[in-house]
Write a protein that binds this DNA or RNA. Sequence first.
DNA 1: CTAGGGTATTTTAGGATTAAAGCAATCCGC
DNA 2: GCGGATTGCTTTAATCCTAAAATACCCTAG
Lengths: 149, 149
Amino acid sequence: MSHDRDALRAWLALLGTANAVKKGVDTRLRQRFGLSIARFDVLAALDRAGEDGLTAGGLTSRLKVTEGNTTQVTAPLVEAGLVERRPDPNDRRVAIFRLSPEGRALFAQMAAENRSWIDAAFAGLSTAEIARLRDLLGALQPPLHKEAA
Amino acid sequence: MSHDRDALRAWLALLGTANAVKKGVDTRLRQRFGLSIARFDVLAALDRAGEDGLTAGGLTSRLKVTEGNTTQVTAPLVEAGLVERRPDPNDRRVAIFRLSPEGRALFAQMAAENRSWIDAAFAGLSTAEIARLRDLLGALQPPLHKEAA
DNA sequence: CTAGGGTATTTTAGGATTAAAGCAATCCGC
DNA sequence: GCGGATTGCTTTAATCCTAAAATACCCTAG
């Protein structure tokens, strides 16, 4: 009957489902490749950026995290040789990250497996239902954080 | 066209929406009451459990976290006087948690505000659409973690 | 030029979470 | 009853994340 009660239940379902899928993906990613979702996300952003790479700030905004987090999450990837980190020759404050050949190859494998896991998770829904789900999610109004200047 | 591509996009939308709403709720909860979602969830579980309270293990399974996490999250709530923690008289290994009167009163306020925030986030969806969303979420098959014995 | 302000990143401190190791207390088979 | 396994919880170390302070560099007004 009441909208707010239904909304609360839907929110709990939304959060629970997202957590369950995320946990499944994270577990598999770690088992198969030894990398967390956070690190996979870095590889994904850099793969998308291509040969030009991304600055630390660019990565930060694409990953929707804080600058400090970017510093920390990229460090072990650089250490492992999956990501290259070079200073911008025009502005020494800026760090530019891009995938190494090894990083690019590993990401390709990870992305393929990830896609198949997600596809399996959505196997119970038709393509039309998936589109409907996206529409409904898009109608949600996440409490707007901060307004622009 | 392809199911897997749509599934991947829906997954990203699902995760992004869940994170955005969660962050909004967490921010407000901290501003208004000085407590994180994690602590709010403890109060919610204990409120639901009533006067009998819950053991640490019971809390752990309801919150779907690990035992160590329960130990840590409850500690500051006990410290703040919102939660009482007593040993089980029949089994000295067991810790029983329940809400203090202050905890119960604070939770009532928090729950009321939380409900209104969630309701606002879902304001763009009709009650029927919310029900539909829940159905679609229920059709997802989170990669089953561990099989039973 | 140089001082001040603004920008890009790192560092630090801390919360939330997990996995794994450690400690007690209980239970059970003999 | 006793010893060993099990159970319930805590501790420890690590990752992921944030907010805030610190650092380093660039740019522009005078």
